[in-house]
């Protein structure tokens, strides 16, 4: 009686051990090329500010939960870096499967000029599924600080042709709505799509 129980216990234990060995030999998290996507060892939370999106709706970063997000912080009057980043996002998106849970958006650091309508027209020019939002300067300051993005108005803000210096990396949010990593420039859409697929498949 006792013997039978021991044998069963041993059998179960070895089964379990085998299972765990099999599990651990498979990588728990995929190995991501950190020259393409730098995944933070520890995720960070975003400042809980209020934003206005391109439909005029009030949102908070918590609304990004549920999907992976690639966000770029820029402005629509930007001649070089921002259109290039958004064109790259489009290239990345077209390389991902259609039912992907990776979304793309622009956060404008220039609320003075970037109205919801303007943002909508701007981002949907690149892709109909792209999203955009902005807020007042105070909220933008808090939000950018929480994702390590730097920006600075350059020039006379009373005129319409001032510029905004800003970070040129993309910010990656995980489905928990946390800041999970960054995608540094120069952006290679092909490589980024591959690494994003690996990362989000896990």
């Amino acid at each position: 009686m006792l013997n039978k129980g021991v044998i069963i216990a041993i059998a179960l234990a070895s089964l379990a051990a085998g299972y765990f060995v099999a599990q651990s030999s498979r990588p728990k998290t995929p190995v991501i090329d950190d020259s393409v996507i730098f995944v933070y060892p520890q995720t960070r939370s975003l400042a809980a500010v209020s934003l206005t999106d391109m439909y005029g709706q009030s949102i908070t970063p918590a609304d990004f939960k549920g999907d992976w997000w690639v966000l770029y912080f820029g402005f629509t009057f930007c001649p070089d870096a921002c259109p290039m980043a958004l064109a790259n996002m489009k290239q990345i998106k077209t390389r991902l499967p259609e039912n992907t849970n990776i979304k793309f958006g622009l956060i404008s650091v220039d609320p003075q000029r970037d109205t919801p309508d303007r943002l909508k027209e701007y981002v949907t020019f690149f892709h109909p599924e792209f999203y955009a939002a902005t807020s007042d300067a105070e909220a933008i300051d808090a939000l950018t600080a929480s994702v390590n993005v730097v920006y600075a108005i350059s020039g006379d803000q009373s005129k319409d042709d001032y510029s905004v210096d800003h970070s040129n990396f993309m910010v990656l949010l995980n489905p928990e709505g946390e800041h999970a990593g960054i995608i540094s420039s120069p952006h290679d859409p092909e490589k980024i799509a591959v690494e994003l697929s690996k990362l989000t498949a896990s």
Partner: peptide, 12 residues
């Protein structure tokens, strides 16, 4: 010249 969305007055 970089094509930009029509709402953007600036390009490079």
């Amino acid at each position: 010249i970089r094509m930009v969305p029509s709402v953007s007055p600036n390009s490079a």
